[in-house]
Amino acid sequence: MRKPKLSTVIDHAVLIAGSLFLMLPLLMLLQMTTIPDTEIIQTGPSLKIGDQFGDNLEKAMLQASGFSGENTGMSMLKNSFILGIGFAVGKIVIGMTAAYAIVYFRLRFATLAFWLIFTTLLLPLEVRILPSYEVVQRLGMLNTYQGLIIPLIASATATFFFRQFFRSVPEELVEAARIDGAGPVKFFVDILVPLSKTMIAAMFIIMFVYGWNQYLWPTMITTDEDMYTLVRGIKQIVQVLEGAVVPEFGRSNVLALVAVVPPVLVVVFFQSWFVKGLTESDK
């Protein structure tokens, strides 16, 4: 066998080190879910794989941890899925229709609409968080899914993405369709949507992860514990850990893991779509 070159060995060493840097913290979290809380208080994370994972999982997912007794892991998981999927679907539907109107129609106020929509790309929700909260409060949407999801949709990322994509669709396609007798609705349903399948999938993955991982907004909008998402729940977990005599590390670590697993699986399994969507959205 040929001796590997030194530079190749170094390349692999760097990549392995990088992979470990990114992986070890979560492996540590995983290990800590397998040992009893009493052991964690004494030794912290170790290399030992214990047998407590099932118990911890059951405790985290089925037993309530808050005051109201309503925020079990299951209910938080459900809320996270509602937020992730609701946000992604809402964003895609609204973005696609708006982009379709802007790209494919003669509109007198098209430029104005364009600027009104794309200015929203400039200011992230975080900088207008308090007034947004007030607006949602005034509309009576605190602790509702609408209040959680709709304000997050109020930015044009998906619209911009679909606009870019529609513009790259050859002009002749709409012309051919018009000669073939397709009106605007038929063209959209028969041709543009099927053509955008990959783009929709890519956008869905990115938006699902983005929605799932929202923290600040859910923290402000949801005060009822049965409305908590997993990521929102992290705050409470940390606070509970601080106060308790025997902190429930097992339960909290399982919850943190559950908060991570679905988006990670989505990103890993649909990697090529995800990368395509991410790198093409910003060109």
Partner: peptide, 22 residues
């Protein structure tokens, strides 16, 4: 805009309303 865009007057407005309202 595409050079041969549709000129239906009300449809694009309908399509833009959700985004603009939000």
């Amino acid at each position: 805009m595409k050079r041969a865009g549709f000129s239906t007057p009300w449809l694009p407005v309908l399509l833009l309303v959700p985004q603009l309202a939000i």
